[in-house]
């Protein structure tokens, strides 16, 4: 993942550079903050990739120019979910909760309960 890490690191450096230039020419706070936060966010991703992904066998195989298809084989990390009812249920809950902000608190509360229940079920199913 050297390429990925470099990509995010260089993008973070670009965010810091453009924020500095923008502040120098404009002294405008909103835009400077937004640009600087982009740099911080990209740095976070670079650090995550660097610290957690390096050494992972599948990543080593993906990054090896002469890898064979079987090089990443062997580790069983669980079945792919084919179906789940909870994503659509959670979406319905979110719709009710947000539309409730427009139509009435009762609907928002109902939606919040529905979304919380579906979210917990989705989380439990994903474990």
């Amino acid at each position: 993942m050297k390429t990925g890490t470099r990509m995010f690191l260089s993008s973070a450096a670009f965010g810091a550079a453009i924020a500095s230039i923008y502040w120098y020419v404009s002294h405008e706070t909103v835009g400077t903050m937004l640009l600087a936060l982009i740099g911080v966010a990209l740095l976070f991703v670079a650090a995550y990739i660097f610290l957690t992904v390096r050494g992972d066998r599948r990543q080593v195989a993906a990054d090896a120019a002469d890898a064979q298809p079987q090089d990443a084989a062997g580790e069983i990390i669980g079945p792919l979910p084919a179906e789940s009812v909870w994503p659509i249920m959670l979406a319905i809950g979110v719709v009710l909760a947000l539309d409730g902000l427009v139509y009435g608190v009762w609907l928002a509360v109902l939606g919040f309960i529905f979304a919380t229940f579906s979210g917990v079920a989705l989380f439990r199913e994903s474990r």
Partner: peptide, 29 residues
């Protein structure tokens, strides 16, 4: 979390039915 196709051993997915409900609850990309 999911595996990739490169894994030699992988448990099968549940069979998908082609009906309307299957499309509502699908997680297939």
């Amino acid at each position: 979390m999911n595996g990739t196709v490169a894994e030699a051993v992988r448990p099968p997915r549940k069979a998908q039915s082609a009906d309307f409900v299957a499309w509502l609850v699908t997680t297939d990309h």
